[in-house]
Design a protein around this nucleic acid. Structure first.
Lengths: 332, 332
DNA sequence: GACCGGGGTCGAATCGTTTCGATCGAATCG
DNA sequence: CGATTCGATCGAAACGATTCGACCCCGGTC
C-alpha cells in the first residue's frame, strides 16, 4: 500500500499483482479517494490535457458566428478521441489571463496585434500557438485564408458585370467595434487582419469604393450599415454592395427589401463565408465560400503536431466564388 | 534572489523593496522566465481558475442552440471580472474525462443520469456541481425550469381554443437521438429530464396525444417530424402541434407552408423557449418564453457561492406564455 | 544602552503525483 | 546448485510554485 503502487494501479501503467490491485482499490474506497488529482498530475506530467481557444469577442458572441461553429466542428473532428478539453478564453472580458492559462497549446481566432505579449509568454513556456486568420505572429503557426485574393475575385465579378459605384461594408475594425466610415486613419490604426485583407481585395478592383464598418457580423448590423448607404435617390446609390460576411449581406438584402429596392435588378450584393443561412432569405447569395471546417481541422492538426514535438505546418486555404441570385448587371 | 522573494514579486503579495523587485525582474528577463507556472500554482493554491461546462451534445452542436448561447450570456455576465475560464466538456465525444478535469466547479447542462459516477468523483474532490435542468443529482445545486407547468399552461391554451386532436414533437429522448414514436417503454428508459417534463406537461392536458421524438433541436428536425404528422387528409391531421422547442416549431411552420396548410387556420403551433428567430418565419410564434439568461446567471452565481464556501442556492425559474399568431381555434 | 517593532528577505515544508532506480523473492537456465 | 532474469513492490526525488516562520537589521523609545 505504498503511494507508488497506488499510482501504478490508477495509471494502469506498471505490472501489479491482482491481489495488490484489490487492496489498493479497497483502501481508496475506504479513504474516499477519487483518483489522481488532475492538478498534481498536470504538474508532474508537464501537460494539462487542455487546449486554449482564444477569441476576440465575448464568449457567446463568438459562438453566434456560424463560421466559428463550423470551425469548432473542424477542431472537434480533428481532435477526435484525443483526450483533450477546450478552454475558451475570451480576450474581451476580464476573464482568465491567456499568459497564465493552464493550457498545452493555444489556438488564436483572428486575434489582433496586442496579443503579442501574451503569445511571447506562452512561447517562453513552450506552449505552441496556432493563429487562425490573425496578423502574422512570430513563432505561431499560421492558418490563413486568401481573404484578399478571394474578395478581389468577387469584386472582379461585379466589375465585369459593369458595376462602378460600389460600396463596402466591413467587419469591425477595432476592439471597440465602432461603426462608421472607414478612413485612411482608421485603416492605419486597425489591427483587424481579416477585415483589412478583405477590404484591400475589394479596393484592388474598386480603389475609391467607400467603406463603412459594421459593429459586428450580424444581420442587424448589416441592415443598419445598409440603411445609411441605400437611403438615397437611385442615382446616388451604389449599384452593388460588397459585404464582408454573409450575415452582413443578408442584412443588406433585408434592408433593401424594406426600402423597396429590388435585388439584383437595382442592387447587387456580394457576401463572404458561404454559410447556409437557411430561411433567412429567399435569395441565393453570391458569396465567397470559405472552407471553415477545414480551417478548424488544419488548426487542430497543427496543434496536435506541435504537441507531438513536430513542427506544425502553416496552411493557406482558398475560398471559392459561388454565384447566386444576388448579382446582376446594374440597371440602366 | 531567492525563490520566495521572486514569488512575492510576481504575486504582488508581500512587501518588497524596489531595488529587490528590479533585481528579480532583471533575473527573470535574463533567464527567459515567463512568470509562475499555472499548473504548479494550481497545485499549491488548490484551485485552477477554471469552471467546467458539461454538455450532452458535441461542442459545436451545443452552441448551435440559441438557448445555450443565451445561457452563456448569463454565465458571462455573472462571472464578470472574476478571473475564471470556461472549460467546455462535451460528454458525447471521447474528449476529456469529467472526473479528471482540472476544474474548480462544474456546471452541468441538462445532463442525464449516467453522469452520476463522474459527479460523485467530483464531489469527493470537493468540486461543487451545478446542474441545470438535469435529473436530480445528489449534492448538486439544481437550477431548474418549470418545464412541466409551463407546457401545461401552453397546452391549456390550445385546449381552451377547442383543440382536441393534438400531436407532440419532443426533443431527443436519449443519447442516440433516435427519431420516432414515443412509446411508454421509451419514456421509462429515458433519462432526458427536460424532454420528459415537457412531455408530461402536455399530456397533463392531452393524455392521449401522440408524441414523436426529433433527432435534435433544429428547424430541419422539426420539419422532418412534422412531415410525418401533417402528410394526411385534413380529417386525420392534428389541429395543433406542441413542439418542445422554438426551432422545432419553426420547422413545423415551414413544413406546413410547404404542404399548403395555413397556420393558424388549419393548424396551431406552440413552441418553447422564446428565442427570437429573426427572419426565420413571418409568424410570431406562440411559445413559452424561458428566462435563459437568468438561468445562466443563477448557475454561475451558485458556482461562485460554492467556490466562496457558501452553499449555492437552488433555483426554480418560470416560463411565461407569449401568445403569438400561430394559435387559433381549430377550423370547422 | 537595552528592548521592541517592523520592514525586508530567505529556508524549508507542502501541495499530490509520476517515475527512476533499488530491493527482494521466486522462477529459470546452464 | 549458483547465477541470472524477471515480476512485483517500494523509497525517494523530482515538478514549480506558495506560505509560514525565522531571521536580520535598522530606527525609535524609555
Amino acid at each position: 500500500m505504498s503511494v507508488s503502487t497506488a499510482s501504478l494501479v490508477f495509471s494502469g501503467r506498471g505490472p501489479v499483482a491482482d491481489a495488490t490491485r484489490d487492496r489498493v482499490l479497497a483502501a481508496a474506497a475506504e479513504l474516499d479517494y477519487a483518483g489522481p488529482d488532475p492538478t498534481a498530475r498536470s504538474l508532474r506530467r508537464g501537460s494539462t490535457g487542455v487546449i486554449g481557444v482564444v477569441t476576440e469577442d465575448s464568449l457567446a458572441d463568438t459562438f453566434r458566428d456560424p463560421m466559428n461553429l463550423a470551425l469548432l466542428d473542424g477542431i472537434g473532428e480533428e481532435l477526435g478521441d484525443e483526450r483533450l478539453g477546450l478552454l475558451v478564453i475570451p480576450r474581451a472580458s476580464d476573464g482568465i489571463d491567456l499568459a497564465a492559462a493552464p493550457v498545452d497549446a493555444a489556438i488564436l481566432l483572428g486575434c489582433s496585434t496586442d496579443i503579442a505579449p501574451s503569445v511571447a509568454a506562452l512561447r517562453r513556456r513552450r506552449v505552441p500557438v496556432i493563429a487562425i486568420e490573425a496578423v502574422p505572429i512570430e513563432d505561431a503557426v499560421a492558418v490563413d485564408l486568401d481573404n484578399r485574393e478571394a474578395t478581389r475575385r468577387g469584386a472582379e465579378l461585379l466589375h465585369g458585370l459593369g458595376h462602378r459605384r460600389v460600396a463596402i461594408i466591413t467587419l469591425p475594425m477595432d476592439a471597440a467595434r465602432s461603426r462608421g466610415e472607414v478612413t485612411a486613419e482608421r485603416i492605419a490604426e486597425s489591427a483587424a487582419s481579416t477585415t483589412l485583407q478583405r477590404l484591400a481585395g475589394a479596393r484592388d478592383v474598386f480603389p475609391d469604393a467607400p467603406a463603412h464598418s459594421a459593429g459586428g457580423s450580424t444581420i442587424d448590423e448589416g441592415a443598419r450599415a445598409a440603411h445609411g448607404l441605400l437611403d438615397a435617390p437611385a442615382g446616388d446609390r451604389p449599384t452593388a454592395i460588397i459585404a464582408q460576411s454573409d450575415l452582413l449581406a443578408v442584412g443588406v438584402l433585408r434592408e433593401a427589401e424594406r426600402l423597396g429596392i429590388v435585388v439584383p435588378r437595382d442592387l447587387s450584393v456580394l457576401g463572404f463565408d458561404g454559410v447556409r443561412l437557411e430561411g433567412a432569405t429567399s435569395h441565393v447569395l453570391t458569396t465567397l465560400v470559405q472552407p471553415a471546417v477545414e480551417k478548424g481541422r488544419a488548426a487542430a492538426a497543427a496543434a496536435l503536431a506541435e504537441l507531438a514535438g513536430r513542427r506544425g505546418r502553416p496552411v493557406l486555404l482558398h475560398c471559392e466564388l459561388r454565384t447566386g441570385t444576388t448579382t446582376a448587371p446594374p440597371a440602366g
